[in-house]
Each structure stands twice: as structure tokens, then as C-alpha cells.
Design a binder for these strands. Structure first.
Lengths: 338, 338
DNA sequence: CACGATCGTCGAAGCGTTTCAACACGCTAA
DNA sequence: TTAGCGTGTTGAAACGCTTCGACGATCGTG
């Protein structure tokens, strides 16, 4: 491999000049720049990442810690990841992938100066990783909201607003008895904050709109979904509007409703909280509140880069929810009869 | 951050001694080792990754190029990725994530010495990336089979054997008219080799078993699946055994079959080629040929590590398919009537 | 016309490791 | 007694880059 010295020799300049051509940190005359660039081209020169990291204490790599196995809906994760990776490239950074359970990886990549910054997904209310990265010298952005962000930046969909929005939509359509089919019990047990935030918004809005609301946890399996639907229909038979916040269970919820003879879009309005493409790939196009996973990933990178260049203060950004009406929701009984 | 010199000073030895304690490349007496280890502990010392890479030309990072967006079933991709990442950790390596479309990333990470080796997923028959990595100094393992591996190692499920196995299973159950609902047209157009290999095995076995076989491409959408089922039932109404090799379409294929009045497991036998957990999360547990994505990812890392330590020759490993009988396949007409 | 800025370039000192050659020491063997 | 050997340790030279301070040349300004 050619080194910067080779390039300098070939171009008839000093190594520092080559370095400044590359980094643009000092003015270089046009002819010199041209000669250097030609030499780089000819030799196929690439700076050695390690050497660069050593000299500049910048790696141009960010770490992304993602839940690679557990229940959390896989397509959603992929979209986050895709957003992070593509946006990172826009900033000329690469992405080192860490798994959620590899907690020691945090120390490894931060203390070892392997990365310039971190992005962590799927944050729990009392996440043990938060204090670790808060102590690191690298800036970190959390996707999700911990109880105590400890000066870290956070970004997420505003699930509380999403809960309110979903209920308002159903109320406006005349429904008076609504329900949530939500996350799996283990997610709730971990106090993953998005689940709780959605419920809070839901309940607030239901209260102020004067409608009844029933909440069911739901495993992301066919049987889990069936069970949730069955108990819902048994314990709150007057329900005509359902909010589903569980991508994995969604198809099975719809299937079970069909089996039970409820026609979604007519007898029963269903609003999903999920990425748009998931909403569109169901048996009928779902009215949904978009979970803009890829955007969130991108915003996370934007935030991390901002903190990397200036000593910006930390911030929390909650993206406003957007509801798109499709074929799974319709006017409910009160509106019909009223 | 503490450096190796700080450790050396604290332990009262030279820096090289500390280095040898860390790497184990030279014998160190027990007492010295103990002193050094204590110093490391006390100072919370971590070697600087960049410095290490510069001096040793080893980064302890491997690159993984994964298709982060397109049609290929997302859960399957995740399993590959999970397999690669966890196995890499077993070898004390981290994973740098590249997206499939970022072809220039290959040159960046190889020429820039950012990684020790590469793993590339979703290889097409005439993949433009193959010559690139073949020219790199880092060893590479391909998940999938290109037309010309150019001395690179490959690993994949033996899809040809899987095709034969699926047909044999259906034939043994008495079916005489079988069909494949396969990959989306765009996958076929790209000549992604697994699709073609499965079809080859399928046709071979059908021929030698004397059964008829019909092949339908299929988009991974509800409508695509419905269409495929409809044309199949229209053009080959005598079909009683279906092989589905399309994770995304699978649920919709089953749904459409149900709508059309075909009872899967009784009127119609269906064999899926997909990861076990996908097979199990359908409306009924599917008879399936497992696509051991996580294992394949792990094997890929094993192979890449082998090539990293010795100058092993390249090899191609095709994993033998395993069929597990569940509730979606049953004895067909010939067996029943015969 | 002399003065200080500004521009473009250079030399050299790091950055924190690994690793090679060398050496000190205590043995054994001759 | 000495040569030779293995064991454990060391000093110093890379590794390839960035960046600081310095310097000559060119410029505008009073």
C-alpha cells in the first residue's frame, strides 16, 4: 500500500502538504493541489485508518448498539439501522455494530477509542447502559427515553402524542369504546418507555374525550394475538375501535378478528402504530400512525454529529406523530346512529 | 486515558513487557505478569485501537456487507447478522456494517485497512463486488454462490439439495403434481443464485420421480401472493403440494389458500423453505426446510478466521438441508387413493 | 519604500502500539 | 573454568498519519 510519503514524493511536495490537501485545513494553491491529487489517483492511495485515528484521535466510526435477537419487531430495527448507516455515510462515517446484550462492548469501543460516538437503540426506563455511556468521552444519542438521560441526547417518536392522536381519530369517527392491543408482557416488564408513553397518551385522551379504554398486552405470536383478541372481545364486547401497537402481532390480530367475524373497516376500526410499509403489507391497508424508524435513525446521527463538532448541550427530540387514514378504520356506532 | 507507558511505569517494567503480557507472545514470569495485570486493572487501561492497528496491521474488526433495505426477507437478514456478530465476538473481533449498495465502501475499508476480513451476504451470480474483494488483501467469505468465486470462500445452504428434498418429501406423501411459489421476479432477474439452485434441484428430482412441477415467481406482498396462488390454481388445478420459498409471501400465500377454500395440511400440502421461527409463527406450524441463517453467519466467521490465521486455501461449504415435518403437509391423493 | 499581514509550504515532533535484536542471568555440559 | 543455552526482560525502531511552529514570498498599506 502506498503511504502519504509516497504520494508526497510523487508529487514533489512534503507530507504535510499532502495531508492538508486531504483535510483542507490549510490553504493550498491550485497547481499544488492538482499535482497532489494526480499522485493520489495514480498510486491509488488511501490513508491508513489506524494511523489517522492515532494522530488525530478521530476514527470516523460510530458505534450502533442494536437489539439483534429479541422480540422487538425485526423490520423496525432494520429500518433504524438502515437510517443510521446511510446517514452516517453522509458524514463520512462508518458504523460499528454492537449487540444489545454485549454491554462490555460499550467499554471496549469507548475506552479503546474505536469510535467517535455512539447511538443506542431500544432504551429501557432504567437502562444499565445509560450510566456507562454517560461516563464515556464520546457523545451518545439514545433512541428512546430513559428515566434519567444523565445529559445524553435522546430522540424518539412522541408516543404520548401518538396515543392521544389515535384516540382522537377514533373518537372523531364516533367510537366510544376503544382498546389497545399493545406490546408483549416482557417489554412492559422491562419498562421500555415507548409502551408506557403510548398508554399514558391514550388514557389521557380517553379521559378527556370521555370514552372507555381497555388495554391488553399481547405476545407477537399467532396464539398470543388470538388470546388478546379473544379476551378483549370477552371482557369488553362493546369495543369498536382498536389500536394495535405491536408489528409482529398485527397480522395475527387481523386474522383473529376475521375468524371471529368482525369485519375490519366496517364493524371494527383498527389503527396501527407501525412503519408505513408494515401498515401497507397487511390483508387490507391499515390506517396507521407512522413509526418513522429510518428517519429516527437519521436524526440520531444528525444529533450525534452536531455534538461531535461543537460542544453543544444535550437535547431531546420527540417527533410529532402523523396519522394516515386508510381502509381499516371507519365511522363507528355513535356516528352511524347519531 | 492511560497509555501502555503509564502501565509500565506503575508496574515498574518496560512497555514491551506490558505488551507481551497483553499479547502472550513471549514468556513472562508469574510475578511480573501479576504486577502488570494489577497496574492495568488499577489504571483501567485499554490499548488504543488505532495505535494497535498501526503497529500490528491488525484491526480486530471484520466488515459485514448486508442488504439493509430491499425485498430479501428482513428477519432472515437479521439472523445472518446476529450470527456473524456473535461469532465474531468469540474471536475477539468487532463488526463494521456496510450496506449492500455502498460498493465503494469495499475499497474504503480494505484499502484503508479498517478491517481484517470481510463477509458479504446475498451474492448474485455475476456480482460486481466479487472481483473487488478478490483483489483486496483481506480474506473474504461470501454467503451465497457467485458464478465465479475467484478464489474466495463461500458458504450457503445447499439449496439444490433442499429442492430435491422438498420434492422427495411430497412424492413420498403421494403427491404427483407439485409447485413452487418462489422468489420475487426481481430476485430472479438478478440471478441470485439460491433461487436458481433451488429450482434446479426441484426440477431434477421431479423429473427423476416422474411428477409434474409448476413454478411461480411471487412478490412478497399480499397481492403478489394472491396472484401467484390464483394463477397456480388456474393453470395447474391438479396441484396438491406446494413448496414456498419466500418468507415474506408465506403468510399471504396461506391466507389466500384459505380464502380459496384449500385446507392446508389436508387438501393441500405446503412445505416452506425458511428459518424455523418463521415456519412456527404462521397460522399453522409449517412443515419446513430450515434456512439456518444464524448458523450460516457463524460458519462464515469461522471460515474467515481460519483464513486469517493460516494461509488456508479457499473452500465452499454447502450446509445439508433438514426437513422437519409439522402440520402443513399430509398424505396426498395418490397415497390416499392408492 | 519599509512594514506587517496573508498565503503556501515545510520540517519535525508527536500519537500509542508492536516487535526485533540484544542482553543479563542462572543453568548445564564439556 | 568456560562455552553454550534458555528464560525473562529491555531499548529503540518502526507503523503512517496530523498538526504546530516556522519561514520565505507576495501583497496591500501608509
Amino acid at each position: 500500500m502506498a503511504t502519504i510519503d509516497d504520494v508526497a514524493k510523487a508529487a514533489g511536495v512534503s507530507t504535510s502538504t499532502v495531508s492538508y490537501v486531504l483535510s483542507g485545513k490549510r490553504p493550498i494553491s491550485a497547481p499544488t493541489r492538482a499535482r497532489v491529487e494526480r499522485a493520489i489517483e495514480k498510486l491509488g492511495y488511501r490513508p491508513h485508518a489506524g494511523a489517522r485515528a492515532l494522530a488525530s484521535s478521530r476514527t470516523n466510526v460510530i458505534a450502533l448498539m442494536a437489539p439483534l435477537r429479541v422480540g422487538v419487531s425485526v423490520p423496525v430495527i432494520m429500518q433504524f439501522v438502515a437510517g443510521v448507516v446511510t446517514r452516517a455515510r453522509d458524514f463520512d462515517h462508518d458504523v460499528l455494530l454492537l449487540t444489545q446484550d454485549d454491554v462490555s462492548g460499550l467499554d471496549r469501543v469507548t475506552s479503546g477509542s474505536m469510535v467517535d460516538a455512539l447511538v443506542m437503540m431500544d432504551i429501557e426506563a432504567d437502562d444499565p447502559r445509560v450510566p456507562l455511556v454517560a461516563a464515556a468521552k464520546q457523545p451518545t444519542v439514545l433512541i428512546g427515553l430513559p428515566q434519567d438521560p444523565e445529559g445524553l441526547s435522546c430522540v424518539d417518536l412522541d408516543f404520548e402524542a401518538a396515543g392521544r392522536l389515535a384516540v382522537r381519530h377514533l373518537v372523531k369517527a364516533g367510537h366510544t369504546d376503544v382498546a389497545l392491543i399493545g406490546s408483549p408482557p416482557e417489554v412492559l416488564r422491562r419498562h421500555t418507555s415507548y409502551a408506557e408513553r403510548l398508554m399514558r397518551g391514550l388514557r389521557d385522551q380517553a379521559k378527556s374525550s370521555g370514552v372507555r379504554v381497555k388495554v391488553e398486552a399481547c405476545d407477537s405470536t399467532p396464539s398470543g394475538a388470538s388470546e388478546a383478541v379473544d379476551t378483549l372481545l370477552a371482557t369488553a364486547p362493546e369495543t369498536t375501535g382498536i389500536i394495535v401497537h405491536n408489528e409482529g402481532a398485527l397480522p395475527h390480530v387481523l386474522a383473529r378478528l376475521a375468524e371471529r367475524g368482525a369485519v375490519v373497516g366496517t364493524d371494527m376500526s383498527v389503527v396501527a402504530v407501525c412503519p408505513t410499509d408494515v401498515a401497507l403489507s397487511q390483508r387490507i391497508p391499515m390506517t396507521s400512525i407512522d413509526l418513522p424508524a429510518e428517519d429516527i435513525g437519521k436524526v440520531a446521527v444528525d444529533m450525534v454529529m452536531t455534538r461531535l463538532e461543537g460542544e453543544q448541550p444535550s437535547e431531546t427530540r420527540l417527533l410529532a406523530p402523523v396519522l394516515t387514514e386508510r381502509e381499516s378504520s371507519a365511522y363507528g356506532p355513535a356516528a352511524v346512529h347519531g
